[in-house]
Design a protein around this nucleic acid. Structure first.
Lengths: 102, 102
DNA sequence: ATTATTTGGTTTATAAAATAAACTTGTTTA
DNA sequence: TAAACAAGTTTATTTTATAAACCAAATAAT
């Protein structure tokens, strides 16, 4: 009836990161931080978890003299995201709304 | 960009319970337990949280001589669920569901 | 009748997660 | 040269989720 939800994606910040990376294809740490509103520490931890799972690839480069952490989603990550959304739908499939609104 | 997700609903079991109660309108503890596959302890805790938030109403009655815990979703709970779904959509970057199945 | 089992839960303990605070390393800027 | 800043990481703390242990009443077995 209810499909289990991938715990790695069922997290507000990680889901936001994945959603963002899917839409932009690649993004730098400060940009992700700004878009998600996360603290650097929290973001660092969650990016690590996503990378460890193989859902994103993290490339550490330099931009001039500044370090630059570049992230992008992997095919595995994209698949996991799609599966997660499909699973989530089993929880959201509620009968059409009959209540009146403004 | 990403709307915050109500932490009370962003939980696999509580979301399943809400989804179930919305679809059936009212249900007894053992039925919810069976449908969600939760352990009794976990279910008891999560039902309490939902009730404390006013998302569900719990009525303790008797069915013959057996105690019977009856749950139903409240208008507040239904609204919260709808808001949660709307917020979730900001993460799924999928246009409002046109795909209708079966 | 007494003991064992089942039903319908609740309470408590523990493992896992999320999150922010504190810290590090190197770079500009005053 | 010292102070502030940028880009993160590491560590500590608080929450959460979850199951294990427990309880009370009813029913079934001996």
């Amino acid at each position: 009836m209810f499909k289990p939800l991938d715990p790695l994606l069922h997290s507000e910040l990680r889901l936001a990161v994945m959603s963002l990376l899917i839409s932009v294809d690649e993004a730098e740490f400060p940009y992700i931080k700004q878009q998600t509103g996360a603290t650097a520490g929290n973001l660092s931890v969650q990016l690590d978890k996503l990378a460890t799972a193989g859902y994103i690839a993290i490339e550490k480069t330099f931009k001039g003299k500044k370090p630059c952490t570049l992230c992008r989603v992997t095919p595995v990550g994209l698949k996991a995201f799609e599966d997660y959304v499909a699973a989530l739908r089993t929880y959201l499939n509620v009968k059409p709304d009959t209540t009146q609104q403004t």
